[in-house]
Design a protein around this nucleic acid. Structure first.
Lengths: 226, 226
DNA sequence: GATAACAGACCGACTAGTCGGTAAGGGTAC
DNA sequence: GTACCCTTACCGACTAGTCGGTCTGTTATC
């Protein structure tokens, strides 16, 4: 099945010469990376086959190894690509609007909560998944994953620091709280995967939100969140 | 290397006839499961090779498939075995001593905190790692992982429920808080792996402890934990 | 005509799983 | 008590198929 009809797009417009063409067809490298995000998030890095990515991207084996010198190099590139993709998503998200830093931070958490929808591979985290598999076997991928996680956490630090100052909260660092939010979100994804139910992840985000509210005294001492 | 000297334990005592013999040499199945815990925690399920487990356990290929009908079946058995192992660890742990349920719960969290020591594969969670890889490809393993996680969370529910009653905390379920602790711990492991530093995981547990303290009003409103 | 961007046949190492065999107990009939 | 047999545990060579990676084209663009 599907052997002769796969690559009948012979006259594909050289996309890189005119990247502004609004055609849906991106270049092979990008298509491979898009495929990598989808497949790796679904079945992990080790179980992802190069041939599978080629098929999904409509690229032949030679094309893959033209752009990536090895599967591991693709892993690094995928983590970086994920970093770019998510960065622009969060940059353009609406949670930066409020003038109050704590509200911005809480709105971020609400935004993360709202992202948990649809199928599990669609909202879970690529770099969290890859980290678990390769942290001992591929330092390059591991470091790329950490860059993505810690880099994202750093985008929260300014607001957290400002909120801590404004509401007189101390006893911890803004960086540590930012990382804690990421840990909790990653853990929430694991539970959702294990239970096969996104709801349990949402419950976790609600606890996280409650923690921040209690920490900054926005809600009364003895929780009462609905 | 190591081909002729592997199985020179010819006169191995029939272990199942007299399981009380204090010999260090367990039966092949147990040795395979022990090997599975170590190897899978280090490099994940997909990247773990059957031959590798056989070598680590000092068992031949045939022995492996005598005890497990497939690699996937081993995955299920490993999750169950992990469940048994950790259950007895936590049952015999000292955090059940206090007469106050909240103290017992907080002592549990301190116990989890104290477990984070040594090399990363030694304190991270098997079922959390496996879940990420196989949640879509192997429902059997995924379910076994969920049994382990949720089963462990359930051991906390009674104390949490009692503490909620005693300290008049509501607005959430004991079950959901128990699961939240597990999510956070799992997420803490991911950060530790990504950063290659257990310290970041300990910081996360400290936040979790602070959350519980705030929730139950054990510490003043505006955190001040050192 | 040089180069980048692929195509796709091919290779060799690897890998899950098979299969026929061996040996050690345990039951039991005598 | 021993001869017989069945079951369970385990061995290890073998296989059929898989997978990352290579190599030799081919085509379009500058």
């Amino acid at each position: 099945m599907g052997k002769s009809s796969v690559n009948r797009r012979v006259g594909v417009k050289r996309a890189n010469a005119a990247p502004d063409t609004p055609e849906e067809k991106k270049d092979a490298r990008t298509r491979l990376l898009d495929a990598a995000l989808a497949v790796i998030r679904t079945k992990g890095f080790s179980a992802t086959r190069v041939d599978e990515l080629c098929a999904a991207a409509g690229v032949a084996k030679g094309g893959f190894f033209h752009h990536f010198k090895s599967k591991e190099a693709l892993g690094v590139a995928a983590a970086d690509y994920w970093n770019e993709t998510t960065s622009s998503l969060f940059e353009s998200a609406p949670y930066h609007r409020s003038s109050d830093p704590l509200t911005r931070f809480l709105d971020y958490l609400q935004f993360r909560r709202a992202l948990i929808a649809g199928e599990i591979p669609e909202f879970t985290c690529l770099v969290g998944t890859m980290t678990q598999e390769v942290y001992e076997t591929s330092p390059d991928i591991r470091d790329a994953c950490w860059r993505s996680i810690s880099g994202h956490a750093e985008t929260l630090e300014a607001d957290i620091k400002a909120a801590m100052k404004k509401y007189n909260v101390d006893g911890m660092s803004a960086k540590s709280l930012a990382l804690y939010t990421q840990a909790t979100i990653q853990g929430a994804f694991i539970l959702a995967k294990a239970k096969d139910d996104p709801k349990v992840a949402i419950d976790c985000i609600d606890h996280l939100i409650r923690y921040v509210e209690l920490l900054f005294g926005r809600k009364g001492g003895k929780a009462s969140r609905k």
